[in-house]
Nucleic acid binder design. Structure first.
Lengths: 107, 107
DNA sequence: TATACTTAGTTACATAAAGTAAGTTAATAA
DNA sequence: TTATTAACTTACTTTATGTAACTAAGTATA
């Protein structure tokens, strides 16, 4: 992407949030810590991409990964404070969607 | 995408907003009606994709396209009421970005 | 008249991202 | 010894995006 006159923090934020699946993953994790496979089936993302996104979100400090040494191993993902701070964004989208989106797709 | 238990309107909204460039295009249009080439250079998107996105946003009633029969022809894109209603979403992202994003990318 | 200029695209082709399905690892249960 | 489970990863296919050249309509200029 080339330079823009837009605030770099805002643009960086959009570069994370605008990625496919990111919104749904965060929304899903607002319900609390969850395992990989739970997220996977809850939002219908492929394992390959979920793995990629979670690493990305972890790198950005939005998601925290915890390993519990059980059998089989339990790994849980949860939002950090930074991630939880996105709740108002998601809520706003939801409010907008309820006011303005059609129930049935236009197609 | 497979079915989820998530509110379909919310999911449909995310399917629009989560697309690359959509957020920046809407943000840019919050400043008022603008021409194709203005948006293109303002946010650094390729013409090919901008054309695609604007058609999409128009189809969803978020953007309105107006043709002014001047020379050369002037075509302007602006947000509809539905599109303007997204302003709080973008503002929330901006607020979040200011609080939580690093100035420099983490690499 | 012929050539050039402008905006708003479109087209053809190359590269990057996402989807699919099978395979891997580690611990344990049958 | 074989099977099971969760959490990935790998190889491969399909889709999305980037790049650069091209088109169309309406003048303006040589």
């Amino acid at each position: 992407m080339t330079d823009t006159a837009i605030c770099p923090k805002f643009e960086a934020a959009l570069n994370i949030l605008n990625k496919r699946w990111t919104g749904l993953i965060i929304f899903q994790l607002l319900e609390g810590a969850q395992r990989f496979s739970t997220i996977e089936s809850a939002i219908g993302i492929s394992g390959r991409v979920l793995s990629e996104r979670l690493k990305d979100l972890e790198k950005h400090g939005i998601v925290k990964r915890s390993v519990y040494d059980e059998t089989p191993v339990r790994i849980e993902y949860e939002l950090t404070e930074k991630g939880i701070a996105l709740q108002p964004v998601l809520e706003n989208i939801q409010t907008w969607a309820e006011s303005w989106m059609e129930s049935k797709p236009l197609v």
